[in-house]
Amino acid sequence: MKESKDDEAIILPSLMSYRDIAIHDFVPPPAGAIEDRAARRRRRRIVTGAAFAAALIGASTILLVRAVPPNDRQELISPSSSPALTTSPAGPTSGPELIPTAVMLSTLDLWDSGAAVIDGEKGGWQLESLKPHCVNVPGAHPGSAPPRSGSRERTLKKAGAQVWQVVHRSDEARERLAMEQAREFLRWCPGVTIDGVNQPLQIIAEGFAGQESFIVRLAARNWVFVRDGELSTQILFQNGETLQEMRNVGRKAARRFCHAFTPNC
């Protein structure tokens, strides 16, 4: 029994200290990112279920048609029994093929080693996703960004740290407008409520990369916006990166834009 007490005296301070401090090592990604992933997964299940049901109906139709004498077959094959109509892929295409992967940040742009890239995750973390949490909004929302020809998104992940990036491509006028609308969003939404606490949303740096750039801060989260020509990017940091580190990554993103599309960059 005494041994047990001695052991507890050794382990308790470490465990209690860990319990109080370690929670701050884990910053949650925006709730919108989780909600969007869940909604996407639900949609995928519905589409897969519909495809399976349609395939089943198609297979039964074929078996039924085969079982019917040839002269009566035409009546059975009506347009409404075509399974293909219910299985077309859902959702708009975002044209990622217009954006070479070389344009995207690599893990080495952020860390030395031990990191991974996850491509294909979409939405939910961008500045715009804060919209439902905005407080003191003056009137109507300024509106969404213009449609783009192509968008590509990736998550860069290392133990205890994640960085999200989306790159958009259309024409220069539209990308300029999108940057202006991001600023407009900030004028419309000066702060948000998270976990019952009001937090200001503000620009903390500008003009450090590409043709235009700025960084938006919300508590521990920072969104870096960079535009160069017909490309723009939004990058979310939330791992305690310094302003200088985020500016540097913004410059690397701009350099990648330039190298990808300008031979003598």
Binding site: F26, G32, S144, V166
Partner: peptide, 25 residues
């Protein structure tokens, strides 16, 4: 800005974000 869906914001589940931010860490 962000993704350009043009769609109205999806209704968020009430209480989910609070529970998430409070207990994630």
């Amino acid at each position: 800005m962000g993704t350009a869906t043009g769609a109205p914001p999806r209704a968020r589940e009430p209480g989910f974000a609070d529970c998430y931010y409070a207990s994630y860490g």
